[in-house]
């Protein structure tokens, strides 16, 4: 089919076939992700706007400096790096699951999906720990114990945005994990085997990578700058 696509290359838009060489489901997934990018974009841009309109802002390195089991030692950026790596690795396992799907390799698909699900749970666990830790420090929606970098009292918007945006991202991770579990069950039940293709895995994979992609920007906006 890829062959014919090349032959007809000049008539992509002539009708009777997809101008993108994809079936509609994947196209809709891409466009859904694009619109979801605007949801996240709006959140992060709102955060940026409020931050730009404040005279000073808390220094993330003073806020996110704890590590589970490390007591009160000052370890800026350490825990969030761990979370970032977990998400990147789970993205890699998802790529391998999708690839196994292309080869019709059922065992490979379920093996890599299980790893991806584990990665997703690990990330959610990390996030739960971080939220609990911050909560015990007195941070929550509407409560911000952290002063601005210049020593003045900070508005609550630092924590407001942090919990709203990481919460919204965490919700996406959670739904991604649920989708992946459903995919795993469907794989196990030979649903895709019977269909003859593993395209659903590919769409679930797109969603999962998108979650990773958003985290890259959350990481940038909340922890790095």
């Amino acid at each position: 089919m890829a062959q014919t696509a090349v032959v007809q290359g000049k008539q992509w838009w002539a009708g009777g076939k997809s101008p993108f060489n994809v079936e509609y489901g994947k196209l809709m997934m891409w466009y859904f992700l694009m619109s979801d990018a605007f949801t996240f974009g709006a959140f992060l841009i709102s955060y940026g706007t409020v931050r730009f309109s404040a005279n000073s802002w808390p220094d993330p390195n003073h806020v996110f400096n704890a590590f589970p089991g490390a007591g009160h030692s000052n370890l800026p950026l350490a825990f969030v790096s761990l979370m970032t790596f977990i998400l990147i690795i789970s993205s890699v396992t998802m790529v391998l699951a999708v690839h196994a799907g292309h080869n019709g390799d059922k065992r490979g698909v379920s093996k890599w999906l299980i790893w991806t699900i584990i990665g997703g749970f690990a990330f959610l666990g990390c996030q739960a720990w971080e939220w609990t830790h911050l909560y015990h420090e007195g941070a929550w929606w509407g409560m911000n114990p952290f002063p601005n970098a210049n020593g003045t009292a900070s508005s609550t918007n630092f924590t407001n945005f942090f919990f709203t945006i990481t919460g919204f991202h965490g919700f996406h991770v959670f739904s991604g994990v649920v989708i992946n579990i459903i995919m795993l069950l469907m794989t196990r039940n030979n649903v895709f085997e019977k269909k003859g293709h593993y395209l659903m895995i590919e769409k679930a994979g797109l969603y999962w990578h998108f979650v990773d992609l958003v985290w890259v920007f959350v990481f940038l906006c909340f922890y790095l700058v």
Partner: peptide
Amino acid sequence: HSTTSEVTFTQ
């Protein structure tokens, strides 16, 4: 719809 589902990305 001659779009066959087999075609995903060109491998």
